Simulated scan of single mutants.
Amino acid sequence: MNNYNFIRKLGCMLVLFSAVQCCCGQGIIKELPLYDGAIPGAKATTVKEQKGFDPEVDSLVYHVSVPTLEVFRPAYLPPGAPAVIICPGGGYHTLLINREGRSVAEAFNRKGIAAFVLKYRLPDDAYLTNKAMAPLMDAQQAILKVKQHAAKWGIDPHAIGIMGFSAGGHVAAMAGTHFDSVYVPHSGGISPRPDFMILINPVISFSDGTGHGGSRSNLLGAGITEDKIRFFSGEQQVTERTPPAFLAHAADDKVVPLANSMDLFAALKKNRVAAELHVYAFGDHGFLKNLPAFEQWFGSCIYWMQTSGWLKQAR
């Protein structure tokens, strides 16, 4: 074989190898029904799920009545790999399914972490018997489902966390503070308690001074009582058994006040729960202008997972 042909063949082999490597590094994506049988709390409806697009926030999903779990698993996971269940935000009226879901799941995959995007039900009396409880029910079911299939998916059943953005942060915080009561059909033996929480500009409180009024109104509707406000305010539900948490928030957030993260952080520290809070001077709500850059806050999150022992092998 002359040198020219050899170089050509070698080049083709390298291109093919690179393509295979790229493919293997991508997440294995599969969308699964969240519930194996009937969806608890659902009622017959003619309301259909809708998709939308906003140039600032990417793809949106509305009127979610059938919850799903999207599996993002890299071709290779190191032994004892953790997993993160991601709850996109959207004020309980939509889901930012790509920007605060799938894109983040792919970033976790690149770090050797399995990820799951939870398309939780959006509160609507048209298709839910108790719209206020449906997102928490779906979060609990997602945790139970990932734990039940941990061996099959090659992840550590004791290193399964939940992550949420904005109203999705409220869903995640509810899962982290109300795990003692199981609100979905459950055979027992597995706890719906997440092992850790990652909360990004989260809605935490439903109090008048701190809470996000839109999220509270969409979830609870009319007839809001003090008992409901207390139940759905995460900072009032923290105990010593609440999972460790990583929080990130912008000080100039005009939608969800910084006090949501600060009050939860204070409650966690009061109860001797390990927590880390990053406050950025600028970024407004959702870090929409990439300020801080994704690599900045996400890198801090990965470092927290490593130093906390959830991520045993750095990438």
Rank of each mutant, 00 (worst) to 15 (best):
G154N: 10
I155P: 05
D156V: 00
H158N: 11
H158D: 11
A159S: 14
I160D: 02
G161W: 10
M163A: 13
S166P: 03
A167N: 00
A167M: 05
G169C: 05
H170R: 07
V171H: 00
M174E: 08
M174N: 08
M174V: 07
A175H: 05
A175K: 06
T177K: 06
T177P: 07
H178W: 02
D180C: 04
S181K: 15
V182P: 07
V182W: 04
V182T: 15
V182H: 07
Y183H: 12
V184W: 04
V184P: 02
V184S: 05
H186F: 13
S187Q: 15
G188H: 09
G189M: 10
I190F: 01
I190K: 13
I190W: 02
S191H: 08
P192M: 08
R193I: 03
P194A: 06
I198R: 05
L199T: 08
I200R: 01
N201T: 09
P202N: 06
V203T: 13
V203Y: 07
S205G: 12
F206V: 09
F206W: 11
F206E: 13
D208T: 12
D208F: 01
D208R: 14
G209L: 00
G209P: 00
T210F: 05
G211S: 11
H212W: 06
H212I: 09
S215A: 15
S217P: 02
N218R: 14
L219Q: 10
L220Q: 10
L220P: 09
L220S: 12
G221C: 07
A222P: 02
G223N: 07
E226C: 05
E226W: 03
D227V: 00
D227P: 00
F231V: 01
F231Q: 12
F232V: 07
S233T: 14
S233K: 13
G234W: 04
Q237F: 13
Q237H: 09
Q237I: 12
V238E: 02
V238Y: 03
T242F: 02
P243M: 05
P244Y: 10
A248I: 11
A251M: 12
L258N: 03
A259R: 04
S261R: 00
D263R: 12
D263C: 01
L264W: 05
L264I: 07
F265A: 06
F265K: 03
A266D: 15
A266G: 05
A267S: 15
A267D: 04
L268M: 09
K269E: 14
K270V: 10
K270I: 07
N271Q: 11
V273N: 03
A274N: 09
A274F: 10
A274G: 06
A275N: 08
A275R: 07
E276R: 11
L277D: 11
H278I: 00
V279I: 14
A281W: 01
F282R: 14
H285C: 12
